[in-house]
Design a protein around this nucleic acid. Structure first.
Lengths: 155, 155
DNA sequence: ATCTCCTTCATACTTTTGGGTGATTTTGTA
DNA sequence: TACAAAATCACCCAAAAGTATGAAGGAGAT
């Protein structure tokens, strides 16, 4: 709505300036024709003025690019009860299994132990943990634990 | 350097288009003067063309406006202040160095990174961590971190 | 002085972890 | 049903972590 109004104003302004220029030229025609100014001079003047107008218009109307910046605002929680940070997990796109693996990891289990506990193979756990590290943007399980603790993915 | 080159090119392009327009107008003057087109028509054409040129120029040359959009994301923080459990550390007979190593471990650092940070060799850190694991009665660093968290040796 | 503990470092070896690739099956959803 | 994501597993290789053992210098206690 606001943009529309602005556009409207611009249009009026543009029209007015066109009209003013036409008047100016007509006046010039009367006053200075005797001096035998060639048509090219007028054309040049118009060209320059409207180029400037175009530049001004473009700068006024061009939309700014939007750059998103994420700020982490500390949210102080006083309760001892652990509340799983679902939002963060979703934002990172962590799957159920990956979260399970992460939580067992944080308990200090080895990959083999996690595999046994979840009744899957060691290789599977390795795949899960690799993806986990990618998503958390970490390199080691200890870093993953740090991250998870910080963002309330684990108690 | 590059911008200067670009500006140079733009200038040439601009000059050429001006010249082309002059020629075009001269030709129109010859061909269509009989039809008694008024000066305003020409002026209008020039105005429109050069407005567009101005817009194009501005868009080409101006830096894109950047508008930052800030998104705040809550980061859950436990308000309980951390108090190091001196008693427990003494009970287990942990040395200063071992506690240091343990705390860096919990931050997610690798042995090599800990060694660099403490200005000692990798082997030294291995020895420290081995002792640490013995005293904490754990087998892996992740378990050590769990233990340390549980007993308030680390935040 | 002697002893103990801490700290430092080395070498050799084993286990665990992690990266990369590829493949198959299951499952949820359009 | 068809498609995408999730879950499963295998194999190979490299890096990191962990174990065992030995050794040497320094600080503090007896």
């Amino acid at each position: 709505m606001r943009l529309r109004l602005k556009l409207y104003q611009q249009t009026i302004l543009y029209g007015l300036s066109l009209a003013a220029l036409a008047l100016l030229l007509r006046w010039l025609e009367f006053r200075l024709l005797i001096l035998n100014h060639s048509f090219e001079i007028y054309a040049g003047i118009i060209a320059v003025i409207f180029t400037l107008l175009g530049i001004w218009l473009a700068l006024k109307l061009s939309r700014p690019k939007i750059e998103t910046k994420i700020i982490e605002r500390p949210l102080i929680v006083n309760s001892t009860a652990f509340i799983f940070n679902k939002t963060f997990a979703q934002q990172l796109g962590l799957s159920k299994r990956e979260i399970e693996v992460l939580q067992l990891m944080a308990k200090g289990l080895s990959n083999q132990e996690i595999a046994d506990q979840l009744f899957v193979s060691l290789n599977t756990i390795k795949t899960h943990s690799s993806r986990l590290f990618e998503k958390l943007e970490v390199k080691r399980r200890t870093q993953a634990i740090e991250m998870a603790k910080k963002h309330a993915l684990i108690p």
